[in-house]
Simulated assay, not measured.
Amino acid sequence: MNIFLLIAAGLSAGVCLIHTFLGGREIAVPLLQAADLAPVPKYVSYFCWHIVTIALAAIAAMFAFAAMRPDSLELAWAATGLTGAICLLGLAVPPMKKQTYAHMPQGWLFLPITVLGAIGVS
């Protein structure tokens, strides 16, 4: 059992739950209630919200599977690459859009997962 990948799986599952429940209430519900947003961007954004939910759950599953199966490190590499890319994007967007990390902290959530994944695959 790879403890680093197991912890990365747990943190990834936690991020998925935060996204689903807290983010759903704070982001998805107001998005759907926005009367001034045209239907196409509104529902495409909502669809993308669900794509992210699926991706986050898949990342958690990839880390968990790789933690229990040492012959499956390709999954851990893929999950680490995905979380690393999400982390970089999440850290770059707020300053580029003149936002604060207090309003957009998502990138920071992926940093410890990426570090644990990198340790776990090495």
Results as ranks from 00 to 15, higher is better:
Ile54Gln: 10
Gln33Thr: 11
Phe65Ser: 11
Ala67Lys: 05
Val15Asp: 00
Leu56Cys: 01
Glu26Tyr: 15
Tyr46His: 13
Cys16Trp: 11
Pro70Thr: 13
Tyr43Asp: 04
Trp77Ile: 04
Phe63Cys: 04
Leu5Ile: 15
Phe63Gln: 05
Ala8Pro: 10
Ala35Leu: 00
Glu26Ala: 15
Ala9Gln: 12
Cys48Ser: 14
Pro30Cys: 05
Ile51Lys: 08
Ile27Lys: 03
Ile27Trp: 04
Ala58His: 06
Ala64Glu: 04
Leu22Thr: 07
Pro41Leu: 13
Ala61Gly: 13
Gly24Ala: 13
Leu5Gln: 13
Leu37Asn: 00
Phe21Val: 15
Ala57Lys: 06
Ala55Pro: 00
Leu31Tyr: 04
Trp49Ile: 02
Ala8Cys: 14
Trp77Asn: 06
Ile18Gly: 02
Ala34Pro: 04
Pro41Trp: 10
Ile27Pro: 00
Arg69Thr: 14
Met62Asp: 13
Thr80Gly: 02
Leu22Asn: 14
Leu82Arg: 00
Ala38Gly: 10
His50Lys: 01
Phe63Tyr: 15
Thr80His: 02
Leu75Met: 14
Leu73His: 07
Gln33Met: 13
Leu5Pro: 09
Asp71Thr: 07
Val29Ala: 14
Phe65Val: 14
Ala57Met: 11
Arg25Ile: 10
Asp36His: 08
Ser12Lys: 10
Ala67Glu: 05
Ala8Thr: 11
Ala64Arg: 07
Val40Met: 15
Ala8His: 07
Asp36Pro: 03
Arg25Ser: 09
Val44Thr: 14
Met68Arg: 13
Pro70Tyr: 08
Pro70Met: 09
Ser72Trp: 10
Val29Asp: 11
Phe47His: 07
Gly23His: 03
Ala34Trp: 01
Ala79His: 01
Pro39Asn: 12
Leu37Glu: 01
Phe4Arg: 07
Tyr46Pro: 01
Ile18Cys: 01
Ser72Pro: 02
Phe47Trp: 12
Val40Arg: 15
Pro39Arg: 08
Val52Phe: 00
Cys48His: 08
Gln33Ala: 15
Gly14Ile: 06
Leu37Tyr: 01
Ile7Met: 09
Leu6Met: 14
Ile7Val: 15
Gly24Glu: 11
Ile7Phe: 05
Met68Tyr: 14
Ala8Val: 13
Val15His: 04
Cys48Thr: 05
Ile18Thr: 06
Ala76His: 07
Gly23Val: 03
Pro39Gly: 01
Phe65Gln: 12
Tyr43Thr: 05
Trp77Thr: 06
Ala61Tyr: 13
Val15Gly: 02
Pro39Ala: 07
Tyr43Glu: 09
Thr53Asp: 01
Gly84Asn: 05
Ala13Glu: 03
Ala28Tyr: 10
Asp36Gln: 11
Ala66Arg: 10
Gln33Phe: 09
Val44Asn: 09
Trp49His: 08
His50Glu: 01
Ala34Met: 12
Val52Thr: 14
Leu31Asn: 09
Phe63Ala: 06
Thr80Trp: 00
Ala13Ile: 04
Pro39Trp: 01
Pro41Lys: 07
Phe21Glu: 06
Thr53Asn: 09
Gly23Met: 04
Ala78Glu: 01
Leu32Glu: 05
Ser12Asp: 12
Pro70Cys: 10
Val52Gln: 00
Ala60Lys: 08
Ala55Phe: 00
Thr83Asn: 07
Leu75His: 08
Ala38Cys: 06
Ile59Gln: 03
Ile54Pro: 06
Leu31Ile: 08
Phe21Gly: 08
Ser72Glu: 11
Leu32Gln: 08
Pro70Trp: 06
